[in-house]
Simulated assay, not measured.
Amino acid sequence: MLVLSRKVGEQIVIGEDIVLTVVDVRNDTVRLGIAAPRHVAVNRAEVLRAVEEANRDAASVADEDLDSLRALRPANPED
């Protein structure tokens, strides 16, 4: 991990087209401005983790829910 010190108004450039600007520093909080192309996803890590967890939870199926769905299926005429 690269660790840099920056003051308010100073910038960090990532690649050729992403610019981070230190907007404000108060107590233990740093506000950053991020200029990036629209195709570059920019997310807070905790939000990204919460979305991934919610997707995993939504994709999992409880056995009783699966049994309820099977009960709704019409009987197979070949049985």
Rank of each mutant, 00 (worst) to 15 (best):
S5T: 14
V8K: 00
V8S: 00
G9R: 00
E10N: 02
Q11N: 12
Q11R: 11
I12M: 12
V13P: 06
V13F: 09
V13Q: 12
I14R: 01
G15S: 11
G15C: 12
G15H: 07
G15W: 04
G15D: 09
E16C: 11
D17G: 06
L20V: 05
T21L: 10
T21S: 11
T21Y: 07
V22G: 00
V25A: 05
V25S: 06
V25I: 14
V25L: 03
V25Y: 01
R26M: 12
R26Y: 09
D28S: 15
T29M: 10
V30L: 08
R31V: 14
R31C: 11
A35P: 09
A35C: 07
A36E: 01
A36C: 03
P37R: 05
R38E: 12
R38K: 14
R38N: 10
H39R: 12
V40N: 03
V40P: 08
V42Y: 02
V42T: 06
V42E: 02
N43W: 01
R44Y: 11
A45T: 15
E46T: 15
E46S: 14
A50W: 00
E53C: 04
E53P: 04
A54H: 00
A54W: 00
N55Q: 08
N55G: 03
D57I: 05
A58H: 04
A58E: 09
A59Q: 05
S60M: 14
S60N: 09
V61M: 10
A62R: 02
A62E: 07
D63I: 01
E64F: 00
E64K: 00
D65M: 10
L66E: 12
L66Y: 06
L66S: 08
D67T: 12
R70I: 15
L72T: 14
L72D: 09
R73F: 13
R73K: 14
A75H: 09
E78G: 06
D79Y: 02
